[in-house]
Design a binder for these strands. Sequence first.
DNA 1: CTGCTTTTGCAAATCGTTTTGCTATCCGAC
DNA 2: GTCGGATAGCAAAACGATTTGCAAAAGCAG
Lengths: 351, 351
Amino acid sequence: MPSHGRYTGPGKGREDRVRKPTISDLAKAAGVSVTTVSHAFSGRRHVDPQTRERIQRLADQLGYHPSSMARALRSGRSGVIALASSMPFAVAAGPSRLGFLMEIAASAAMSALTRDLALCLIPPHPSAQSYGAASFDGVMLVEPMRDDPLVRHFEQRKTPIVSIGTVPGRPDIPAVDLRSRETADLLLDHLADQGCRQVAALIGASPRTSQIESAEAYGAFAARHAMRPRLILLDEEDAEATAYSQVLDLLRSDGAIEGIFASIDAFATGAIRAAHEAGRAIPGSLRLVTRYDGLRAKLSHPPLTAVDLHLPAVAEKAVGLLLDQIDGCKQAEKADLPELVVRASSQGTEK
Amino acid sequence: MPSHGRYTGPGKGREDRVRKPTISDLAKAAGVSVTTVSHAFSGRRHVDPQTRERIQRLADQLGYHPSSMARALRSGRSGVIALASSMPFAVAAGPSRLGFLMEIAASAAMSALTRDLALCLIPPHPSAQSYGAASFDGVMLVEPMRDDPLVRHFEQRKTPIVSIGTVPGRPDIPAVDLRSRETADLLLDHLADQGCRQVAALIGASPRTSQIESAEAYGAFAARHAMRPRLILLDEEDAEATAYSQVLDLLRSDGAIEGIFASIDAFATGAIRAAHEAGRAIPGSLRLVTRYDGLRAKLSHPPLTAVDLHLPAVAEKAVGLLLDQIDGCKQAEKADLPELVVRASSQGTEK
DNA sequence: CTGCTTTTGCAAATCGTTTTGCTATCCGAC
DNA sequence: GTCGGATAGCAAAACGATTTGCAAAAGCAG
């Protein structure tokens, strides 16, 4: 039984605030009907330029702004889209790994604004049922998991969905493909190019497309190079710490490892610490690459070879796709091309 | 003459999507009036438990959810608050220095959600007039400048405002004081404690409270220690690069400098590079501290001594204050206590 | 002057809720 | 028997815009 969110009544203390002028106040002041005012603003019908001018002037004078709530009700669109993620907020309520999500958020906010939309950030609700009082015209999910409760939630609510990164098992949901398979191939091939014969992979255990495809890519890579696979599935909470201890074990038990592919940047940071601890120089005796080229990869020592996922472009496409989804019905699925950024962590010659 | 935002008419293609059930559909199905349904949900009047139960069941069955747009119109509250910043988005459309703002955004989003609000991110609009179609119950401004156009915009629109960091010259606007003066004192005193006699300051040129108070603190510090002040005002765009070149000049022209106080983390990163270039070891021959303890400070080499500003708590307070502002009228101003985080960049003994 | 179109404007319906009055019934107590 | 007080429910008026249908006036050709 869903709680529909308690309604708290009309704002207490509303009477003591000055009432904002409404369209009929303006109409009265201008000596015309509300219809005329509406048309003067929307331009959907012609109004006498002189009248229109007077209305405009009065509007400025009175400080009139059309109520977007009324407009939303009438038009059925709130002008707000949401960005939701089931994971990163939760693991990073603190400042740890906001990078990926927040880079998307910032870009999406700008893309949204240029289309006269606002972007809402919605963290995963602890008791994931009533998502606030606001209503969204659509929602963008970032890297949802298989059977993600968020997907169910918004589907049931008939809110248009666009996923950033495909939804595992749900090819019907429109998505911006993050090209995780290609990304992983890029990174693994790079390691091979750098001469790594034995490569381990640190991959997130959650059933997200990026992790699934990374694992697949790694499997194929191992087969292609007739290499014994060392696939380490890691929990994404407390990523750096668990990566650290697992990699330390690995390096100590298996001296042959020459390269590590970390599908999450925090894994890579953990791996660096482990390598240091195990006395393996990077990139001297161990090469390391990661997927997301965020602040972490850039500021790491040594800087991490990573992939430019073109997140601003991804966000832009997601917003566009969502908009299509909302009022058109274009099911068109779009894609994007990742790009390798080589840095010291994997190069033969130190910068 | 303000553009009030073009209205695009009722969603095209709306007729082909299934109409969501309304309250009167539900009422009809349950054989009661809409009033009863409304009361069944809101609990503002008693309804027979049996009736209520039946309504609930039917609501689930039909997939009914109250329209928040209608609710918003009626109640005058959209359930959405906004977070706006005049600066960081613009300088960091790319991934450069999202840290501060985005840490606040993430925290604020969670704080908002626990109060049944949604948080909108609003980037500074290039043509700063029509901020999307959405309406906000209130807005949080992060570190606005003196005479910030955002302040004017929302004041004119009578949208309740709370500032994160006081607004220079506007003590009347309720704000969460970021305690920039105390923060700067903390850092400068720490440098003095570490034995620095000659300290330079890198401070942002924009008229924000944090920068203003940092400069004041530095001035007082210099006077207190009878030290010739070296105050370097830097443009915040392209912060790292300009800090780099300015600090390089400084170090070359003034060998006495023993410590640097950077009021923005990107300044500090630039300073590190400059120090490296000038052959000054950190913290061996030059100590460096910065204000915001974000990813940059933590991942820097060496890690930067910084201040924990308790941003999640700040965000929480801002949301609370804004809520007071919206429906109560409590003008109460709140504050917070910064805390020093000592790291290698300023310590006598290397970690 | 009639017929036709264009221009300009208004009144009223609509969007989906919440809230305010009002009615009706029943119960128990005086 | 009736007064009071719960209890349960309904009808209708908001909330503030947009949009449809209609009408008055005006211009213009025939």
